[in-house]
Each structure stands twice: as structure tokens, then as C-alpha cells.
Design a binder for these strands. Structure first.
Lengths: 97, 97
DNA sequence: TATAAATATAGAAATATTTCTATATATTGG
DNA sequence: CCAATATATAGAAATATTTCTATATTTATA
């Protein structure tokens, strides 16, 4: 019987629960991008995007890498994979009986 | 090339992004329960749980069924399955090139 | 070193969410 | 029909989130 950390999973879901952040994840699924490139895909201010990127990094969805003036972001594929596994576990408790 | 409905996915994630609601989903994964049974698993008021159940029903995670005085809830397994598929799609756009 | 470019942080306003108390509705049994 | 039980709704207070403007920090280059 595994212990499910609902609080942790909920926090990560909360980070993803935004159309803009989902689209950022999708953009990064095609490869690394810097902040100013990502910004072009949205109609929000630069600080707003910076805030979203911080949330994605803090939630371990995205890894940041500084190169000169630019910050490059790439996906951390493990996180969504683990999250999906956790959701499966939550929905299929009976399997472990 | 599929169209991804980020807004819809974000709304569903927002419904799930709460420890209590995740635990409710987990409880229901073991079978149907009525509201008063679910309530015993938490330290919240009855209206709070009612509000959460409504969110889960509106988000199609849970199906409600009235039987006499009681409302029984059960999982709608398709929804989380579809949501997981959508997340996979978001994270693996390159696969469709 | 001064300036420009890229990004981050601070702080505030607007909006959304959570969760309560009070009350309403629906159903059953006497 | 009345009372009890189960659940839902209304409305408000507390809290959290979103997103802006203004400003600070970091880095490269003239």
C-alpha cells in the first residue's frame, strides 16, 4: 500500500492549471526556448511571463539555464510523467488490493 | 496536427488541483460512496464538501446519482483517462511532426 | 565604464477560490 | 402532514492567484 502525497500532487496540478502555462509546456516540447521567444507567443507583459516561468521551474516542469543575457528553458519530462503515474495511482487504488 | 484546447484542459486541472478533491477521487476509485460517507473522511463542513462534489461533477470527474435521501457518487474513469492523454499530447508535440 | 538588452523582483489592483454559517430543498417514516 | 435526515444553495469573509507598472539586476558591447 503506497502513501499518496495529495498535497504535493495538488500543488503541481495547480501550476499546470492555466492555459498559458500548458501552451508554454507544449512549445518547449519542441525544444529549448529563451524567455523572449516564448514571450512572443503570448499577449502578456514580460514580468507576467517571468512569473509563469518561475512557477513552472519551481514546480519542476521546466529547467532554466542561463546563457549570457538569455535564460533558456527546457522541459523536465520526468515531472509530467511522474504526475501522470500519480494520477493513475489515485484513480486505480483497487488494483493494489 | 491536432488542435489542443488549453482552456478546457486547464479548467479540468484546476478542479483536480486540490488535495481534498484528489483524495475524494481516490476514495471513489474503490467504488461508489454517498456524500455523508465521503464527508466522514474529511474535517470540513457539509456545504464545503457539497461544493467540492459539485466541482467534481461539473468537471465530469464524478457522476452523481440520487437514491432516496442520499446522493451517490462514482468516478467517470473516461475523464482522467482523456486528461492524461491530453497531457501526453501537450508534452510530446514533436512526435506528431 | 556607460549603455542597451534580457530577465527578475516588488508591490498593488483586480479577480478567483475556499470555506464558513445560515437557510432552503428533498425525501422518508410515523 | 410533521419531523428527521441528507444534501444543496446563498452570501460573506478570508485567502490565493493573476497580471499589471515601476524598478532592479545581470550580461554584453561600444
Amino acid at each position: 500500500m503506497k502513501e499518496i502525497n495529495y498535497t504535493k500532487i495538488a500543488k503541481q496540478l495547480k501550476v499546470m492549471a492555466d492555459p498559458k502555462r500548458l501552451k508554454i509546456i507544449n512549445l518547449l516540447s519542441n525544444g529549448e526556448m529563451c524567455a523572449s521567444e516564448i514571450l512572443k507567443a503570448f499577449r502578456v507583459s514580460q514580468p507576467t511571463l517571468s512569473h509563469d516561468m518561475k512557477a513552472l521551474v519551481d514546480g519542476k516542469f521546466v529547467i532554466a539555464r542561463r546563457e549570457g543575457q538569455k535564460t533558456f528553458y527546457r522541459l523536465n519530462p520526468d515531472t509530467i510523467f511522474d504526475l501522470q503515474a500519480a494520477l493513475s495511482e489515485i484513480c486505480n487504488e483497487n488494483i493494489n488490493l
